[in-house]
């Protein structure tokens, strides 16, 4: 594709990361964040620090007008203070909305030093901590992007259909808050993002550039949180799914909590309400996160990294790539005891 992407590259620190988790990702894909830390520490040999004291960024509350901006800023300044206290200056953010919110706040502080001073005052007053700003701040998918070739070098699998030898056709989906507000903070900018296609191509797959590639998944906190409004949300996912359908993608990868969640769950809902299925041969399209994609090529056990928690079954995909798994243990806990199967599972297994 075009060389033009190269104009949107950003500085990504190479080691010593302070990792902040997402509120919702731990529920949506419970294995993903631990997997990320494991890959960094044990596969790439990096230092990652997690602080038990770090909290929500208030993103959801902020986007739904429940938490005032100044409160959000104070909470965020506390995260930054925690990092500096522990001796780190490179922030790695798990959640795309947190990343967008941090970027926005840093930008507001840059343009409004008075506001920054005020927040530093609030922080000192509320917590007694010292105000600081991160030296480098990136999203977790940026780190995987930076080390994509190192991961490829130690990968056990390629994103290739072993039955046909063809690269897997993969839809990338970037959370809006990753680069649409600040294109210069995203690898590849907002219009032709490179961060996930970089992973896909480095690991042997092929990106699907379909017409609605840049369209929002529709999650939108306001849309989702009020039940009656969810129709707006699902309508946007539907636009994307309809647009990608003719390409018969093998999977989708998303770097945002909401996108990965809803592109996955709404496929089930659309089948239940309208009878529509968007994958090839009457099957739905599996959705994974960037960490899970890395985990798959690195040869992690699919059930260890939580792939069974996705609504759309991933077994087909695992077979295509050639990843071994034990069907018996899909719904087993760490000790091997079965914890029960999800209720709806029979219906949406096509």
């Amino acid at each position: 594709m075009s060389k033009y992407w190269k104009e949107y590259q950003k500085e990504i620190a190479d080691d010593n990361y302070f990792y902040v988790r997402s509120c919702i990702r731990q529920n949506f894909f419970p294995g993903a964040e631990n997997l990320f830390i494991d890959i960094l520490r044990n596969k790439l040999g990096k230092t990652v620090f997690e602080d038990a004291d770090h909290t929500t960024c208030t993103g959801i509350g902020y986007h739904t007008d429940i938490v005032p901006l100044e409160t959000t800023m104070t909470v965020v300044s506390r995260q930054f203070a925690l990092m500096m206290e522990k001796g780190y200056e490179n922030l790695v953010v798990s959640c795309v909305t947190s990343f967008g919110l941090y970027s926005e706040i840093l930008d507001m502080w840059k343009h409004n030093p008075e506001l920054k001073k005020k927040i530093a005052g609030y922080l000192a007053e509320a917590t007694g901590r010292k105000f600081m700003e991160p030296k480098n701040m990136v999203h977790a998918s940026d780190i995987l992007y930076k080390y994509r070739n190192d991961i490829a070098a130690i990968a056990k699998h390629k994103l290739v259909n072993r039955h046909t030898g063809e690269p897997l056709k993969i839809v990338d989906h970037i959370g809006c808050h990753y680069a649409k507000t600040f294109p210069e903070r995203g690898v590849g900018g907002a219009e032709f993002p490179q961060v996930l296609t970089g992973l896909i191509t480095a690991w042997g797959g092929q990106t699907v550039d379909y017409p609605e590639r840049r369209h929002c998944c529709g999650f939108g906190f306001r849309n989702y949180l009020v039940q009656e409004n969810r129709g707006y949300s699902i309508a946007q996912s539907k636009i994307k799914l309809e647009s990608m359908k003719p390409y018969e993608p093998d999977l989708m990868v998303a770097n945002c909590p909401g996108c990965a969640m809803f592109l996955d769950r709404w496929q089930y809902t659309l089948e239940e309400t309208e009878g529509s299925i968007y994958g090839a041969r009457g099957r739905k399209i599996p959705v994974v996160t960037h960490e899970e994609l890395a985990g798959m090529v690195l040869g992690y056990d699919p059930w260890e990294i939580g792939l069974q928690t996705h609504q759309v079954e991933v077994e087909d995909l695992l077979d295509k790539i050639g990843i071994d798994y034990n069907p018996e243990l899909k719904y087993a806990d760490r000790k091997g005891n079965l914890i029960g199967e999800p209720e709806m599972i029979q219906h949406h297994l096509c």
Partner: peptide, 11 residues
């Protein structure tokens, strides 16, 4: 025209 990225000129 590449500067108006949304039109995909050059892509």
């Amino acid at each position: 025209a590449r500067i108006k990225e949304e039109f995909g000129y050059g892509i």
